[in-house]
Simulated assay, not measured.
Amino acid sequence: MNFKEIKDSRITITQLMLPSNSNFSGKIHGGFILNLMDQIAFACASKHSAYYCVTASVNKVDFLKPIEVGELVTLKASINFTGRTSMVVGVRVEAENIQTGKKKHCNSSYFTMVAKDENGKSVPVPGIILKDANAVRRYARSVRRQEQSETRNNKFKEGNFILEEHMIELENENVRIELKL
């Protein structure tokens, strides 16, 4: 089996945020940032696998702080997990005020990318070599995220969903239920 070091596929890009990337409130548009994140995840996964990669899923995107026009945005991507044909790419977004040098963490997310051959078939990817406790933590967290996603998806499938269990949970929510049973 083939393995690569995480550092060998790590990617960092920095881009100046322009007025053309802003929304009506003058902040950088979230969709623009998501596009940059997807691009760097693609580049990182493709570099690791040596194949064209596609985005299979994006796990939880939280916009922690707004990004201003004129700030430098740095995106960092690295492989956190490798499966047989898929990889989880961790992406971190930081913004820097050019005048003050102050940096802020604006976003982190996890992209599941799948390697594809020239015929569009999924292909095996190299594993990763975990060299420090942080790499082990990230790998283990990716495994746990996958397990939680599977459990959540199965619990809410139509055939598995137990209405009574959730009716009590929804009593204190901002919802009015008018079921016709």
Rank of each mutant, 00 (worst) to 15 (best):
M1H: 11
M1G: 15
K4D: 01
D8Q: 09
R10D: 02
I11V: 15
T12C: 03
L18S: 10
P19E: 12
S20D: 13
N21R: 08
N23M: 03
N23Y: 05
F24S: 07
F24K: 00
G26M: 09
G26T: 12
I28H: 06
G30Q: 09
G31S: 07
G31K: 06
L34R: 07
N35C: 01
M37E: 07
I40R: 04
I40K: 04
A41G: 11
C44K: 02
C44M: 02
C44I: 02
A45M: 01
K47T: 11
K47L: 12
S49Q: 03
Y51I: 02
Y51E: 03
Y52Q: 11
T55S: 13
A56M: 12
S57P: 05
N59G: 06
K60E: 13
V61G: 06
F63Y: 14
F63K: 02
K65R: 12
P66M: 04
V69R: 09
E71C: 06
V73M: 08
F81H: 14
F81D: 05
T82C: 15
G83L: 06
G83C: 10
R84H: 14
T85F: 09
S86A: 10
V88F: 04
V89A: 01
E94C: 09
E94F: 09
A95F: 09
E96N: 01
Q99H: 07
Q99D: 08
K103F: 07
H105D: 14
C106P: 11
N107I: 11
S108K: 06
S109P: 05
Y110D: 06
F111D: 02
M113R: 01
V114I: 13
A115K: 08
G120T: 10
S122W: 02
V123M: 10
V123N: 10
I128H: 05
I129C: 01
L130N: 08
D132W: 08
D132Q: 07
D132L: 05
A133V: 09
N134R: 10
A135E: 15
V136C: 06
Y139N: 15
V143W: 09
R144C: 08
R145Y: 03
Q146D: 15
E147C: 01
E147V: 12
E150L: 07
N153K: 11
K155Y: 04
K157Q: 15
G159Q: 15
E164Q: 13
H166K: 01
L170I: 01
L170R: 06
E171G: 00
N174C: 01
N174P: 00
I177C: 07
L179A: 13
L179V: 10
K180T: 12
K180M: 10
L181D: 13
